[in-house]
Simulated scan of single mutants.
Amino acid sequence: MYLRSNRFPPVTKPLLIDPAVEDHQTLMAGLVPGTQAVLLDAKRDGIEQISETLQNYSQLQSIHIIAHGSPGCIYLGNSVLNRHTLPRYQKQLQGWQSALAEDADILLYGCRVAGVTRNASFLEKLATFTQANIAASTSNRQSRARWQLELGSTGGKCYFPVGTDRSCSAKLCCHFGTKHYQ
């Protein structure tokens, strides 16, 4: 794992990035205050890495996860999180609760993670295990320059923790297929 942070003010929103995401260096270079980026190791289980990272935190407002995805699925390190693997990770996901503030958000930036109606059960179960509000993208918006997540229960109160200009946002959108959450 590789860490980079802008720790003034204290970290309230870690940004966890799968190394398969193109141009992740741009994201890590543009952190807004209060954000710490963690680049996951491609050769290790991503859920384990996130769990290890979150042991160092408490009272987090949000967790931002950027990775490749598909309907009902997100790829983290050498692991896959979907409705079939959720039971295997239940204990670790429940452990994330100790790092989160009440009414915290987990934002999944990955193509179409919430893209099919039946995948709502994946997101609902993830919310139940973590006791967090979950938001994810329902589409692959390669032509848009926003990082907005279309499906979730966060109430629109979290913002993408990377300061990006218009050209950077468009480039990142094309790579990740997600939009800025506002």
Rank of each mutant, 00 (worst) to 15 (best):
I50D: 00
D45S: 07
T85S: 15
P33C: 04
C73Q: 15
V80A: 06
A99Y: 02
T53C: 13
Q142V: 07
Y109T: 00
Y109F: 15
A127R: 01
N140S: 13
Y75I: 10
S139D: 10
I65W: 06
G34S: 08
S70N: 11
R141M: 09
F176E: 05
R141D: 13
G163P: 00
L100E: 04
Q55Y: 03
K13G: 05
Q90T: 05
H68E: 10
Q182L: 13
C168K: 14
F129Q: 11
C168A: 12
V116H: 13
Q61F: 09
A136H: 04
Y75V: 11
D165H: 14
A136N: 07
T178R: 00
I47M: 12
Y89T: 00
T53W: 09
G69I: 07
F129W: 10
C174S: 11
R166E: 14
S143I: 11
N6G: 03
S70A: 15
L40K: 03
D18C: 10
T154R: 02
I47W: 06
D165T: 14
T128G: 03
P14Q: 11
F8M: 10
T117S: 13
P9R: 06
P10H: 07
S70Q: 12
V11Q: 01
L126T: 06
Q49W: 08
A99C: 10
A127G: 12
A127P: 00
T26K: 09
R83V: 06
V38H: 11
T117F: 13
I65L: 13
V11N: 02
R146K: 11
R44Q: 15
E22I: 06
I74R: 00
A132K: 01
T128L: 10
K43W: 02
T12W: 02
S137T: 13
G110P: 01
C158K: 05
G72D: 06
R146F: 07
S143G: 08
A135T: 13
F176G: 01
T130S: 14
L31P: 02
A67W: 02
L151W: 14
T130K: 03
L31C: 08
F129L: 15
I74C: 02
A114H: 00
S167F: 14
A127Y: 01
P10E: 09
L81W: 07
L40A: 12
I50M: 15
P87G: 06
I134F: 07
G69H: 04
R144W: 03
T35N: 08
I17A: 08
S79F: 07
N133T: 05
L100G: 02
M28W: 04
S58G: 09
R118Y: 12
G46E: 01
A104R: 00
Y75K: 12
R141W: 04
S143C: 06
V113S: 02
F129G: 01
L108A: 10
S62H: 00
L31Y: 09
H64D: 09
A145H: 13
K43L: 08
K171T: 04
N133P: 04
P33N: 02
E52Q: 15
P19T: 08
Q97H: 12
F129T: 06
C158L: 07
S153R: 09
T117N: 12
A135R: 10
